[in-house]
Amino acid sequence: SPQRGEAGELNFFAAIFSFLFGDGNPNADLEARQWQEIAAVIRQNYGVVVAEQISPYLDDIGQGYAQEFEDYMLPVLLRFSGQPLVSPEGQIVYYFPELQVTANKSQRQPLSVYLQEFPWHFSAASSGQILLSVGLGSLNLVGALVLGDLFRHGVAAKLGGLVGFVHGIYWLLLGYGTAFLGVPLVRYFWIQWRNRQITARNHKRQARAKLLVSADQTIQEKITYARQFAKEKFIGQEDLAYTTETDLLEQEAENSAKTDAEWQRRLGM
């Protein structure tokens, strides 16, 4: 990166900017990751899931009746054109025909057991660069305070010229020196508060994932029904006219041979 030197550190100006304003939101793509992981879970379960398999990837699943009746699944159903199904025992599973695709084990990607938000970091600058930035900010602030003390004793009126000009913009210099240290300080405490919220949300999602691992009989029955339904609805390769795993001409030849063999069998040849 042009902003980093040979040692991998940010250059001087990039380090100052990072110290003052940080390096952006580490979860800017959180919503995209959320939908990708939910879709992956549905695909890995061949298009049929229970709510408990999706809840570790959601933020708020509500409370009371909203949680009991699984209202939090509505956005997922709308997003992926799904539909709820009721088992003979009255349990609800969710069927997503568009995500019921074939997938070899080799094609399956490792998937996080819950949606994880990343913590905010104060700065990508090195500790040495941060100390240097603090030193510069302190020097600016101390210098502004010293100038203010001199101005209070009438130095500006005696010297005039450049000193008089500096006296005219003194409050600007003092504000700059204060902001240079104040903005990162406020941002530091804001990051601590924000990370506590992120940790709490991650813990809630992780707890839901653990609940799924140690599922009670009701959840196990729902998952069993979902798998049975998926098995019944699953379209295997032998039922497809064409697949994407072989060349189109090869598939034409294979299907033609299968058709000829089937006709010969039916005709008793």
Rank of each mutant, 00 (worst) to 15 (best):
A103P: 14
S81P: 03
P84Y: 01
Q63I: 01
G161D: 06
L139F: 06
S126N: 06
L111G: 12
A51N: 13
G90F: 08
H153V: 00
L141C: 04
S81G: 13
D60Y: 06
S126A: 01
V76N: 10
M73S: 01
T102S: 15
L162W: 11
P97T: 07
V76H: 09
Q109R: 15
M73K: 04
W120K: 05
W120H: 15
Y65P: 00
L131S: 05
V166I: 03
D149Q: 06
S127T: 10
P56M: 06
A157V: 10
G143C: 05
Q116S: 14
S127Y: 02
D149G: 09
V155I: 04
S112Y: 11
P56N: 15
V93M: 00
L162H: 08
G135N: 12
E89P: 07
Q91R: 12
L58N: 02
Y170Q: 05
L78K: 13
A66Y: 03
Q107V: 00
L139S: 03
G161S: 04
Q129H: 04
S127E: 14
F96Q: 13
F165E: 02
E89C: 01
G168T: 07
G90Q: 07
W120T: 05
K105A: 12
S81F: 14
V113G: 06
Q129V: 03
F118M: 15
L174D: 04
R108A: 08
L131F: 00
E52Y: 15
V155T: 08
F151V: 13
V50A: 09
L99K: 15
K105V: 10
S87P: 13
S87M: 10
G135M: 07
S112K: 13
F69S: 08
V142G: 01
F165V: 04
D149V: 10
V155L: 10
S106P: 09
Y95Q: 11
L115I: 11
F122S: 08
L78A: 13
I92K: 14
L99H: 15
V163A: 03
I54G: 08
P110R: 11
G164S: 06
D59Y: 02
E89Q: 14
F118K: 13
K158T: 11
P56D: 15
L85S: 10
S81V: 08
E117I: 00
L131K: 02
I130A: 07
F80G: 11
G62A: 00
Q53L: 00
S55H: 12
G160P: 04
L145Y: 04
L172D: 12
V163T: 09
K105H: 12
P75S: 00
G164V: 05
L74A: 06
L99C: 14
Q107A: 14
I92M: 08
P119N: 11
F80H: 14
L58A: 13
V142M: 15
R79C: 04
K105R: 12
H167M: 01
P88R: 05
Y57K: 06
I54Q: 04
G177F: 02
Y72K: 02
G143M: 00
F118V: 11
G137N: 04
D149A: 10
L172R: 09
L131G: 03
